[in-house]
Design a protein around this nucleic acid. Sequence first.
DNA 1: AACTTGCTGTGGTATTTGCCACAGTAATAC
DNA 2: GTATTACTGTGGCAAATACCACAGCAAGTT
Lengths: 223, 223
Amino acid sequence: MDKVFIDDGISKESIRQMIGCLQPQFKRFRAKETILCYSDKIEKLGILISGTAHLYSLNLDGEYSLLEKYDKKDVFGSLFCLPLENFEYIIHAITDCEVMFVDYHHIITPCSNVCAHHSQLLNNLFHMTAQKARTLALHINILSQHTTRKKLITYLKYIHSLSGSDSFLIPMSLLSLSEYLCVDRSAMMRELRLLKQEGFLQSNGRTFSFLKESCPVKNNLKE
Amino acid sequence: MDKVFIDDGISKESIRQMIGCLQPQFKRFRAKETILCYSDKIEKLGILISGTAHLYSLNLDGEYSLLEKYDKKDVFGSLFCLPLENFEYIIHAITDCEVMFVDYHHIITPCSNVCAHHSQLLNNLFHMTAQKARTLALHINILSQHTTRKKLITYLKYIHSLSGSDSFLIPMSLLSLSEYLCVDRSAMMRELRLLKQEGFLQSNGRTFSFLKESCPVKNNLKE
DNA sequence: AACTTGCTGTGGTATTTGCCACAGTAATAC
DNA sequence: GTATTACTGTGGCAAATACCACAGCAAGTT
């Protein structure tokens, strides 16, 4: 299913009209910069136009987890995040990023101008949010697996299914992957090693390929 | 933030007009019945009108996890779920449920009739989906915690923050809670016992209350 | 060149967890 | 009433995991 973008199905001319109505702001961020903190009270919605960013939750002990990974056409903002005692959220640019910000206010309240394509805009936003929900549900499905091995396999099979080819590239570092899977990095590396030793997987850096149909749920090798 | 419902801000008269346009189906389910299987190819969106239901993912080994919990006004359907090799999804009625089904088709494509409130409908759907994303993000935040103790505390603090009162009731059985937290039930019960023995928590059935400000991250008691 | 920074890879060990088995209780059905 | 089913509570133990420490490497900086 292709990602819907905010201006899909709206003519260039209508977009020009809507810019006055939505008053979007465009901003660029360098890699490693913070794009947004949800403690900021500013109620705005962000749409990633280019680049990659991560949503991290941080607790008071300095521990953090990678909740979401954003790519082109992904939407984010505190509208999609419940505030939680002792946690804060930051969106961190992994690569250089281009972001479009829009105030909720301008989307939610019907325009006073006659804006023929507001309905199409809402349609697009609905689909972008549905896409977000799919991604989140996938993440939950991965995290719901009880062992590191199952989390790894579930994630890798998913990426594999997207690629179509035998060998595939994961879209993040192994460090980020361990954060995404919410397991200790060294424990994940160990599990990866075991899977390779058992002959179920090949990998080199971020490139993987499966060697057999199914993977055993339990380790068969001991070191 | 109050939940938006599908007909918010639309007059009774307009709703009557829209029923012809949307052709919703209303169905009732008894507790324990299956409301929907995502393997069903039928592309419809469900809205829970009353009752409680769970979305489970099942794998081929018969293992399952509780991905989402639905209450009144929640929206679900395969639009919000990525198909995953070796997994299927079912929505299971916990209590008796009333569900409204609508074909995506009728929502996504603009009505041929002049339908003044289609934009409001999309607005409502957008908010319902945003609500869903918030709930999913919360779940991920809970699952991202590395220990059973932290998962429990994060969940209970959240429910506590909703209740406003000192003592609070969790909205599911302890068995379902262990499924929601994706931990072994007996391991969760043990952790609960330790938290109570350490004097950080009181509980009786589904009723809980916190006794101290913060909980130690590590167990201080050994049995 | 030397230095910093970020990522990858490995190993040891204490802790946590899942898994299994069983008992008791509450709720519901017959 | 009894039977049945679903949930709660406990314990032992093997297995999996987090945590820690360290080494090597690559890329970029000074």
